[in-house]
Structures are given as C-alpha cells and as structure tokens.
Simulated assay, not measured.
Amino acid sequence: MNLAALAIATFLACLVEAVEATTIVLASGTTRGWRSAMQGVLTALIVLAAGVALAGPAILLLPIDVLRIAVGGLLLVFGLQWVRKAVLRASGRKPLHDEDAIYRRAVAAAADRGGERRGIVEDWYGFTLAFKGVLLEGLEVVFIVLTFGSNARSIPVAAGAALVAVIVVVVLGVVVRGPLSRVPENTLKFVVGVMLTSFGLFWGAEGAGALWPGSDAALLVLVPAVLIYALVLVLAFRPRAATAEEAEVAPAAPDAPVAPAGSSGTGVAVAAPVRPVRTNPLVRRARGFVDFWVDFLIGDDWQVAAVVAAGIAVTALVAVAAPAVAWAVLVLVVLGTLPYSAVRALR
C-alpha cells in the first residue's frame, strides 16, 4: 500500500474521531471545571497506551493473510455503515450530524448534574464524561492506526498521521473553545466511509486469496468507483417531490377525535405505571461491557457484518479455482449490501 495513501486515510479517519472526542471534553471542561476534565483525559490516555502496548505486538504476529481478512472485514463493516449514514444524510433522509447540537446537549446534561468528589477527583461526573469520550473515540483511533498500519507493515506512518490529526483538532479546540462545527464533519465522514469501504474491499479480497488487477494500483480505481456509486445512491434515495396533481388528490387527514372527559386523550384506558425492574449492578455492568464490544465490532446492523463475512468466505472458495476473478465476488456483495442496508435503516 502506498505510504501517502496510508497517511491520508489514517489522518482523515482519525480527524473525525478527534473532533467528536474534543467536543465532549470541551463541554465537560466548560461546564464542570477543567481540572476534573483533564484528569479524565489523562486517565483515558493511560488506559489507551496500556492497550496499545499489549495489543500492538500481538497483532503484528498474525499471518498477513489472516490479518488482511480480519482488517478487511472490520473495515468493510465500518465503512459500509458510515457510507450508508452519509448517503442518507446527503440525500435528506436523515438529519445532518450537528456538532453544535451535540455540544449543547452535552453542556446541558453536564450542567444539570450535581458535583461529587471521589478521591483526588473533585467532580466525578466531569471526570467520567471526559474519560468516556476520550476512551471510546481513542479506541477507534487506536484501531485505525493498528489495522491500517499493521496491514501496510508501517505502523509508524499511521501513528504519525493519527497524531497530526489529533494535534490539529486539539489546537482548533483550544483556539475556538467551543464546538468544532466549522469542520465539515458530514463531508469528512462521507469521504472516510468511502475510503474505509475501499480499503476493506481490497484487503478482504486479497486476504481471501483473490488477485487484484494491477495489485495495489487497483485502489486507484476502487476509491473513485465506490465514491461514484455512493453519489449515485444519494440521488436514488432523495425523496421525490409530489406533483401538483398528486397534491390535489391527496386525501385530507381526518380530524382527531375529541376525547371524552376523564379519558387519556386517546380513547384508550391508561394502564398503571410499570415499576422498573431492578438489575444486579454486576449484571448491568457485564451487559454494558458486552454491548459496547458488540457495537464496536459489529455496529448497528448485524446483517451487514454477516453478509460481509459470508462474502469473504465465498471469495476464498472462488479464489481456490480462479484467484484472478475472485475479487468480483466481494465487489458484488458490497454493491448489493449498501442499498439494502440503507433501505432497512429507513424502515
């Protein structure tokens, strides 16, 4: 893989994650106090550094084809879901991602909570808010660096690009001291989704035994091809405006029935409030831990992950007999999965 392409892809992907983490930290520090927020940031960075020290060398010990299949599959799962969301936002089917709104919600939530001191941490809520934001987004940065860098056998280049992205966003955050809404995040996510999908497609098929025409040069065709396909889907998913004739014959909405006095307002008897079921704290934490990793590795559409896994498996079977054309199997899987996932998300 070209080192310039590796650096650009890593930089853009990490830029998005850094924007989201910085927005959360700014909200925590502004409303709860910077000391507790920075303690949360520092703790999260220590946890991430320990994870990299343990996981980084282990990843490099994996056989290259196993690594390519694992990395390619995960990047395809992430990339397809990112592109799906970007297509629906660009087509007007979903609201655009708004860092201003996210910042306001985080500020409001932080301001409503009372302070609680734990040990050397003056404000535990401000600490945990910053800690979780940096840890969750930082995990994705670490994943991007390790997967991109290890597959290209150049983790220092990927790490350097990620560091530059984080520094750029942090400097912007310090300067503006507010939400980074001027960063065109929706455009960035569209581009990053396309690149993740393209690299995942390339590495997944290559790890399964397929031979791409032109080897690494195939990426020069894959990236623009996936981008064009995504833009076509944007046009296809744009809501069709109703014609004048359709507007005239459209039936008027019936008047809402007037509820009788003493009723719930819907004509339906209101049931007694259900008491919340208490769950053992250990069970709740274990469930939260499992849910986090399921969401982190599979995302919000398990069917996409299942189809990607099946597509790589079929590609490997075809590659045994015809490696020169096996890549087409995974390409067709991606072409079909993206619109299918978008349609399911609109239901």
Rank of each mutant, 00 (worst) to 15 (best):
S154E: 14
V166W: 06
G160Q: 08
G160C: 09
V169L: 04
F131K: 03
L163P: 10
I144S: 12
T147L: 11
V168N: 09
F131M: 06
V145A: 07
L136M: 10
E140W: 00
L139F: 04
K132Y: 10
S154G: 11
V145K: 04
G149E: 09
A158I: 13
V166H: 02
V134A: 06
I155G: 05
V164W: 05
V157Y: 05
V157A: 15
S150N: 09
F148A: 12
L146G: 06
S154K: 02
S150L: 08
V171I: 15
N151D: 12
I167E: 07
A162H: 11
A162Y: 11
A161W: 04
R153W: 03
L139P: 01
V157T: 15
K132N: 12
V166A: 14
A152W: 01
A165E: 08
I167R: 03
P156V: 13
V169R: 06
L163S: 15
G133S: 08
I155A: 06
N151R: 09
L163C: 13
V171N: 04
I155R: 03
F131G: 03
A158H: 10
N151G: 15
V168Q: 07
E140I: 00
I144C: 08
G149V: 13
S154R: 09
G138D: 03
L139K: 00
A161T: 15
L135P: 05
S154D: 14
P156L: 06
L146K: 05
F131S: 04
V145I: 12
E137H: 00
V157P: 04
A158L: 11
E137K: 01
A165T: 10
A159R: 10
S150W: 03
F143V: 08
L136T: 08
P156R: 05
V170H: 03
L146V: 08
N151Y: 09
V141Q: 02
V145G: 07
G133E: 00
E137S: 03
T147V: 04
V134Y: 02
F148T: 11
V157S: 12
A161R: 12
L163Y: 02
F148R: 11
L163I: 13
I167T: 14
V134M: 06
V169S: 08
T147N: 05
F131H: 07
L163F: 13
V170A: 15
G160V: 10
S154P: 05
A159I: 08
V134L: 09
F131P: 04
V168P: 11
L146N: 04
G133I: 00
L139Q: 01
G160I: 07
G138M: 02
K132H: 10
L139M: 10
V141S: 08
N151V: 15
G160D: 05
L135A: 14
A165F: 09
G138V: 03
V134G: 04
L139G: 11
P156C: 10
V166I: 15
V166Y: 05
L135I: 01
A159F: 13
A161G: 13
V164M: 13
L163M: 14
V170L: 15
L135H: 02
K132A: 14
I167V: 15
G138L: 02
L136W: 00
V134N: 03
G133Y: 01
A159P: 12
T147C: 11
G138A: 05
G138H: 03
L139Y: 01
V166K: 03
A158R: 12
F148M: 15
V145L: 09
L135N: 00
V142I: 08
